[in-house]
Design a protein around this nucleic acid. Sequence first.
DNA 1: ATTCAAATGTGAGATATCTCAATTTATTTA
DNA 2: TAAATAAATTGAGATATCTCACATTTGAAT
Lengths: 232, 232
Amino acid sequence: MHNYMQKLNCPICIHRTQCFFNSLTEKEYDFLGANKKEVNFKAGETIYKQGTESKYLIFLLSGMAKVYVEGDNGKLFILELIKPFQFLDIPSIFEDDMLHRSSAAIVDSKACLVDLKAFKSIILGDKKNVPRLIKHYNHTQKRYSTRLTNVIYKNMEARIADSLLYLVNEIYFSRDFTLTINRTDLADLSGMSRESASRILGQFKEQDIIKIKGRKIEVLNKKQLEHIARFG
Amino acid sequence: MHNYMQKLNCPICIHRTQCFFNSLTEKEYDFLGANKKEVNFKAGETIYKQGTESKYLIFLLSGMAKVYVEGDNGKLFILELIKPFQFLDIPSIFEDDMLHRSSAAIVDSKACLVDLKAFKSIILGDKKNVPRLIKHYNHTQKRYSTRLTNVIYKNMEARIADSLLYLVNEIYFSRDFTLTINRTDLADLSGMSRESASRILGQFKEQDIIKIKGRKIEVLNKKQLEHIARFG
DNA sequence: ATTCAAATGTGAGATATCTCAATTTATTTA
DNA sequence: TAAATAAATTGAGATATCTCACATTTGAAT
């Protein structure tokens, strides 16, 4: 098991000891548990597609997944990486149950599907459950703003720096990590072509900002990376 | 008064006869009313800035506003245009009350600020009020996805076409309208420079897709505009 | 109507990023 | 361990978009 698993920081999760669902009563928890399914996904497999309906709340139990928006040309832009005990997505509940983003497994993963009706009844059943859900939406919105700003205003160097800092601070919790994602994913996370991402990485390596050995990356100069992320 | 005022389609509003607040009880409504302030903004004036805290729920009573994210370089990307009786923004309630986007008045406008505490207590006071709020978040998230996809995958022609269709379908409700926004706003809405936006408009005029007389725009061939928005 | 300032339009060169093709490196399979 | 396959790097030309400078139009003020 990767060590990034040890230090989870998810806003909402179903792991009994953490986040969202830990505030549920025993009864609520059992009710949700009775209305869930577990599904396995192989690396690369699509978990769900934007524009489709889902009767389930989806979150990850093991592995890693990417959540992304996709264009007609088949290209995709990764919004965030999802680790175990985080929601992959909540459909548009109280509306049309649609999903507005897509998701795929990066490594072999297991997801848990909770019946949406059961979830709704839990949310509406006790007002103490509402704030956590709202927090989730705030978190998502904030992430969207960041991603949008990132891709609109920053040059490629800043975008790759941003992605590396995201991996250090929010995914692997270490300056020294082995990527679970490939270069194409890193490029999609940074909103550029695979080749451009590769070039920038080489450039950072040349400047001794990072050290690369295949999928092993070590951030040598985080301060400078932060500066590049800010000013390009 | 512009005729676009007549056909409002807002997801949530405070106008007594429409949307969100019309489901409130008399008592709830009066309580919110007692905890609100009205503020006037001149055209161009900033209403709020991203990264700041707000103790108020903000929505528009008259005029028009733009909601946008901004980069360090002073450039901005407009997420949506806001018309009367729509929320400008809801801060990150149940968290840090922060705003993650910015807003400015496009024409002279009046906004209504509702005390956040009062709003929270209304939301938590009766579960019937929760779904409408969740809907608002869904709407916002969907809009973000659209904007993001737009700017990442589409060329300038498609982006301008998209903006024009947005104005026709969601703002003015007519193929024939007088812009309340200027060319710079249209460019910021389309994620490109003012000059580029201007060039594309000229191109569309040349192709008889639209007719332009200053700020008056008439869409002559909506089908083609839709095709361009889709395929570039 | 005339004048002035602001908004808008237009052209040409500059620039960032992409695409394609070739090469190298890493990973899997036999 | 070698061979085969997949992933990553690198270079060079192609392209979309931006920037800057200037021209034109529009709307406001006189």
